[in-house]
Simulated assay, not measured.
Amino acid sequence: MLFHPGWPGYIRGVTAVGDGDFIVAGDTHVSRYRPSTAESEMLFDGLSQAYGVAVSGNGTVAVADLGTGKVHSVRSGQSEVLASGLQDPTGVAFTAGGTLLVSEAGAGRVVSVTSGGVDTLVDGLERPQGILVRDGKLYIVDAGSKQLISVDLDTKAQQIIARHLPVGAPEGVTPKPLKGIIPFAGPQGPFAGIAAGPDGTLYISADAEGSVLALREGK
């Protein structure tokens, strides 16, 4: 769909916002994309390597910029830096209360963004990428350990939901991102994202095999 009318460009992060619309992030931009009408609206351009994107209950768009180690909020064509100095930020998610969480793949942790900086929420991970908050739990795709981990946001209790996931690079292999084709697509690094359906099914982008996995807890 590279040359399809209304195509917003290379996409890495995506989240649905209802009525057939998606907020998408990729390379330097964040856009609103409506495939049914082949329309896209640029919300912000000027990032380095945009990865995960999330939308809060009040409509604030947050995007992780791995290239600069920053997380931005985007609204009405303007960008505000919410956190900086992060090590390979990739995934972003909002809690029910509006707190922004970020996975730092390079630091092996998930942090919460505060007015004074960031606080560590979960550490000891290998290479966390996609994250999701649902029903009081934080779900983390750890591409390093190839596990899906859940964290109770109240008790901080952790549970391994799935092991041996086809995500990330094989053991002992250091991935080398493709340089891409400017201006169509910039550096193309790996990213194992996660999303949830209305029935609670978890969907994981298994980048190691090019599939999408559906996981249902207790089934």
Rank of each mutant, 00 (worst) to 15 (best):
D21N: 15
P35S: 12
R12N: 12
M42E: 13
G57H: 03
V53I: 07
R75M: 06
S48F: 05
T60V: 06
A54L: 00
G59R: 03
V55P: 01
V53P: 01
I23P: 03
V55A: 01
S56N: 09
L2S: 12
G59Y: 00
D21F: 12
F22N: 06
A62G: 02
P35R: 11
H4A: 11
G26L: 08
S40V: 04
Y10S: 09
D27F: 10
L66D: 09
P8N: 14
T28L: 10
N58D: 15
F44V: 02
V63M: 03
G52Q: 01
V61M: 06
L43M: 14
V74R: 02
V30P: 11
G57S: 06
T37W: 07
Y33V: 10
D21E: 15
Y10C: 06
V14N: 15
S48Q: 05
S73M: 10
E39P: 05
V61E: 04
V17F: 01
Q49Y: 06
P8A: 12
S73Y: 00
H4Q: 11
R32N: 12
N58W: 01
I11T: 09
G46S: 04
G20D: 13
A38Y: 04
S48G: 03
V53F: 00
W7P: 04
D65C: 10
T28M: 09
S40T: 15
M42K: 11
F3Y: 14
G52W: 02
S36W: 06
V30A: 13
V14C: 15
D45T: 14
H4D: 15
H72V: 02
A25W: 05
S56I: 04
D65I: 02
Q49P: 00
I11E: 12
